[in-house]
């Protein structure tokens, strides 16, 4: 086992928080695996960024909403191929709408990708990490899971589900020296938030005591900390990185 390369797997590594986590975890010395769902180019760009700073990275196509695809991916690319030190469940999607107008498909798709997909990745990773007798799982939740957010019934429910999952997984996997934590980013400047209009952005900014939006790197630093030996006694926690937006 110890001959295998220490690896951090980050789902959704094409941009934003996933990309920043890939770059940061590579600096911590991990080989980095990122997944992407549609076009490979942005994920390959992430790999290039990692390689430019002296790291090792690979990108894999994986639809996180597809159970069988997840099972096959772990079987073919992870199990007995690498030493899976870290899983960052980051892949996520939004499809906003007020709840009375939300379609069944809109609800189910977001629950499927953000919650079901994260669970199945966690499940596959846990099987491998149990054998290794070590591992770190970090679920990317959201401040909106804690505070609620109009227009995001599907997304907030999924992200709040991740918090419950984090705590149960932390308890079940603790005997195998696997820690499971969640990170709850506040308003972070990424593609996901870029589409909001200025008025909404100003409204959010006024709610943030630190009076600025966070960066993907802010989240990546916290993820790297939770993956580090210094965080070995932290499990089942939700770390909020939100400029004080929600306390």
């Amino acid at each position: 086992m110890s001959k295998l390369t220490k690896t951090a797997l980050i789902t959704g590594g094409s941009r934003g928080i996933g990309r920043a986590c890939a770059v940061r975890l590579a600096k911590s010395g991990y080989q980095v695996y990122v997944t992407y769902v549609s076009s490979p180019e942005p994920a390959l760009e992430t790999c290039k960024m990692v390689e430019q700073s002296g790291g090792k990275a690979s990108a894999f196509a994986l639809d996180i909403g597809d159970y069988q695809a997840i099972v096959d991916f772990f079987k073919e690319k992870i199990k007995d191929q690498v030493f899976l030190d870290v899983l960052v469940n980051n892949a996520g999607q939004t499809k906003d709408g007020l709840l009375v107008r939300m379609s069944q498909e809109q609800w189910q798709q977001i629950i499927n990708v953000n919650l079901n997909g994260s669970f199945f990745c966690l499940q596959q990773a846990a099987k491998i990490m149990m054998r290794q007798k070590t591992g770190r799982i970090i679920n990317i939740s959201s401040v909106t899971a804690q505070s609620g957010n109009p227009g995001q019934a599907n997304y907030t429910a999924a992200k709040a589900g991740l918090i419950g999952l984090t705590k149960t997984a932390a308890q079940e996997l603790a005997p195998r020296n696997i820690t499971v934590n969640a990170v709850a980013p506040g308003f972070i400047e990424t593609d996901m938030t870029a589409s909001l209009n200025d008025e909404v952005k100003e409204k959010y900014q006024s709610m943030i005591p630190l009076k600025r939006f966070g960066s993907a790197e802010d989240i990546a630093e916290t993820v790297a900390f939770l993956a580090s030996p210094e965080a070995s006694y932290i499990t089942g926690q939700v770390l909020s990185i939100n400029g004080g937006m929600y306390m």
Partner: peptide, 11 residues
């Protein structure tokens, strides 16, 4: 064996 051990044995 504990419950996790049993699960791992089965797996």
């Amino acid at each position: 064996a504990d419950s996790l051990d049993l699960t791992e044995l089965i797996m």
